Amino acid sequence: NQESVVAAVLIPINTALTVGMMTTRVVSPTGAPAEDIPRLISMQVNQVVPMGTTLMPDMVKGYAP
């Protein structure tokens, strides 16, 4: 099972992602793949992402898996 990126903390809208904001988990439906964490760092979210929420590609500005 592939791990997806999950918010480790509450991420406010327009916040640039840091490694400490993200964790990985096997979830369904799958979100952004765990191996993309290095690409996701410094990208901004376009909505509030509550802690424990799977990071879906459409939540991150300019990100395409």
Rank of each mutant, 00 (worst) to 15 (best):
T15E: 05
A32N: 03
T15G: 06
Q2L: 12
P57S: 06
A34K: 10
Y63D: 04
V5S: 00
P38I: 09
M21Q: 07
N14H: 14
A34I: 07
Q47Y: 07
Q47G: 04
P50A: 10
Q2S: 13
T24H: 10
L40M: 04
K61N: 14
V5R: 01
T54M: 00
A8Q: 05
M22V: 09
V19H: 14
N1E: 15
N46W: 08
I11L: 00
V60K: 03
S28F: 15
K61I: 15
A8G: 03
T18F: 08
V27C: 08
L55G: 02
G31S: 05
I13R: 13
T18Q: 12
P12T: 09
M59T: 02
I37S: 03
V6S: 00
A7T: 05
V45H: 02
P38V: 10
Y63C: 00
A16R: 15
P29K: 01
M43H: 11
A32I: 15
K61P: 13
L40V: 02
P29T: 02
A34D: 01
L10R: 12
N14L: 09
T24P: 09
D58N: 14
V60N: 01
Q47C: 14
V27F: 00
M21C: 08
N14P: 00
P50G: 06
S28N: 13
V26Y: 13
V6R: 01
A16K: 14
T53L: 02
R39N: 07
P50V: 09
I41Q: 00
P12I: 09
N46P: 01
M21A: 07
T30N: 14
A7I: 09
Y63A: 04
G52K: 02
Q2K: 12
R25G: 11
M22A: 08
A64N: 14
I11H: 00
L40D: 02
P57I: 08
N46H: 06
G31F: 01
T15L: 06
V49Q: 03
G52S: 01
S28D: 14
L10P: 04
D58G: 13
P57Q: 01
A8R: 11
D36C: 10
P65H: 09
V45N: 01
I13W: 05
G31L: 03
S28Q: 13
N14G: 12
A64S: 15
